[in-house]
Structure formats: structure tokens, C-alpha cells
Amino acid sequence: MQRTLFAALAGAIFGLGLMLSGMTDTRSVQGFLDIFGAWNPTLAFVMGGAMIPMAIAWRLAARRKTAVLGGNFPAMPPPRFDGALIGGSAAFGAGWALTGFCPGPALASLSFGGWQGLVFVAAMAAGALLAAPLRR
């Protein structure tokens, strides 16, 4: 129960941050990717800002044996650059560019994003299901 509550708290803070940062506005995201058009640097500030608490958190985690609610911290994945990582990320980038949505903002905007957001999230769930047999 505690784990679920703190997960909900993390999700809630994440939703607040996505809203505040303007990342639920697909024009801002497409604007960041549009280096030959009216380039919008906002996403770089969002990423940079997010790195600061996260980098501190990883340092704090390195000093602890387990998480506050128990369990090990996620291990560093071995540096394996296979077709799944590169091909999957390239496919993600193309879909991100096409719509201006990545998974976090698409979920955060589900309540106010209209039918367009619902269609996107349904397709995203279907895409995730299609990838399931390819995951090891």
C-alpha cells in the first residue's frame, strides 16, 4: 500500500511538472525538433532542469543499500547497443516528431486532450503490445 501511495505521489509530481513545463503542448515539442524552422529550445531547459534533482538522487542512492521502502536500486544496464535500442529509439523519435507526444505528456494530458489524445494513447498501448513478443 505504501509503495502504491508513493508511486501515486511520484506520478502526481511528474504530472505537475509536465504541465508546468509546457510539455503537454505538442507544438512546443515539435518546435524543439524543428531545427530548420522556428526552433523552440524549451525542451532542452526541461531536460536540463530534470537532470539536476535526478543526478542528486542517483548520488544519494549510491550511498544507500536499499530504497526507503526496501528493495535494491536499479542496476546500471550493461552498455549493449543492439538493434532493439537503436531501431526502437529511431521509431520512437519518428512517432514523437509526427505527433509531438511522448508517453509521459500523452498520459498527463489524457483528461483534457480530447479524442485526439485518446486515439494516440490507444495506438500507443497497441504499439506496446505489438512489441511484447520481441522483448526478452
Binding site: R3, G17, L20, M23, F45, G49, P53, M54, W58
Partner: peptide, 22 residues
């Protein structure tokens, strides 16, 4: 707003990592 929102997003990730270990 991007920078502030980013700090909030990073805080969410920090909570999830340190408290839940995820």
C-alpha cells in the same frame, strides 16, 4: 517554465527512485 517544470519532473523521478527504488 520549462526549467521550473523540469526541476519538478526531476523531483518526481528522485522520489520514485529513492523511495520506491524504481
Amino acid at each position: 517554465y520549462g526549467l521550473l517544470g523540469g526541476l519538478v519532473i526531476g523531483t518526481a523521478g528522485a522520489v520514485y527512485l529513492l523511495v520506491n527504488g524504481r
